[in-house]
Amino acid sequence: MNTEQLQSILQSAWHALPTLLAATPVTLGFALAAMVLGLPLGFAVALARLSRLGWLRTLSGLFVSFIRGTPLLVQIFVIYYGLPSLGIQFSPVVGGVIALTLNAAAYLSETIRAAILSIPPGQREAATSLGLSGAQTMRLIILPQAARVALPSLSNTLIGLVKDTSLVSVITVVELLRSAQLVIARTFEPFGPYLAAALIYWLVSSLLEVVQRALERRFSRGAARN
């Protein structure tokens, strides 16, 4: 690569930057929406997998197995292109959010389930001896401790969602990657825009990692005081 080629790449990346930055909030919006919606759904699935009801454990286990065992891209195609044949149709934005939410919920449920199971059974027994109900034990004793255990994995899931949002570009959602593709279609210079998009993904992920570490330190201090 000579100096002129490098200059051309940097110039095309710089020219693409305003368009890509304008699309970045869309990427973040998809990731946050999937996380906010997927977290309670994942919690419900985790509780279902811990239920004493066999049929509920089976159904929730099948959901997790199917979502984790199939590519997210295929899930997006099934929801956006497949469901209309059954009379169920979503806009690209809604379809993308649903696919990301279901995918996130399956992975989050395993994180939450493992965190709950990591709490020693003796604490449940102690709570019962104090007269706490099952719901009170879960809310006051189990969940605060499980949250500290699950925090790193939950944060990693959010970072993964930021990158996974690139897949909704296949259903014409104009997020970060799709914006880069549209710039390339106008300029016929792929390297610069793709490089600029990659740098934005990296910077966003790095920022989220900084926030994750700060939260972990705060939770650790709180646990030490308790």
Rank of each mutant, 00 (worst) to 15 (best):
Q123H: 09
L143T: 06
S166Y: 06
R178E: 09
P193Y: 08
D164L: 15
Y201Q: 13
L154K: 01
R186C: 02
E209T: 15
P144M: 03
S133H: 06
P193R: 12
S155P: 07
Q145H: 04
Q212T: 14
T187V: 11
A126E: 02
I184R: 11
L182A: 13
L177C: 08
W202V: 09
Q136M: 14
G192Y: 05
F191G: 00
R139K: 12
V168F: 01
L176T: 13
L182H: 06
T187M: 07
G131H: 07
A114V: 09
A198R: 11
F191S: 08
A147L: 15
L167R: 04
F188A: 13
I171P: 00
L167M: 12
Q145I: 05
A135C: 00
E189C: 01
L177P: 07
A150H: 07
L151N: 00
Q212M: 12
S169H: 04
A114F: 02
E189N: 13
L130D: 04
V149S: 13
V204L: 15
E175K: 03
T187R: 03
S166F: 06
L143W: 06
L177G: 09
I171W: 04
G192W: 05
V211G: 00
V204P: 02
L207F: 13
A126R: 01
V149N: 11
L140S: 12
Q212D: 07
V210A: 10
L195G: 09
V170F: 06
M138W: 07
I200G: 03
G122E: 04
E110K: 01
T111Y: 13
G134K: 10
S155A: 15
L130H: 07
A115T: 03
L143K: 00
A126T: 12
L207W: 01
V168A: 01
V168P: 05
L161W: 07
F188I: 05
P193G: 14
A135N: 01
E175V: 10
W202M: 13
A115F: 00
Q181L: 07
S166M: 10
R186M: 09
L143Q: 00
I200A: 05
T172N: 12
E110V: 10
V168M: 02
T187A: 08
G131F: 06
L203T: 14
S166C: 12
R139C: 07
A127T: 02
V170A: 14
R213H: 11
R139E: 10
G160L: 11
S153I: 06
P144E: 01
V183K: 03
S133L: 06
G134L: 08
L130W: 03
D164V: 12
Q212S: 14
E209W: 00
Y201M: 13
V162Y: 04
P144A: 03
L207M: 05
A114Q: 03
A198P: 08
N156S: 14
V149F: 10
L151K: 02
S206H: 06
L158F: 15
P190L: 11
G122C: 11
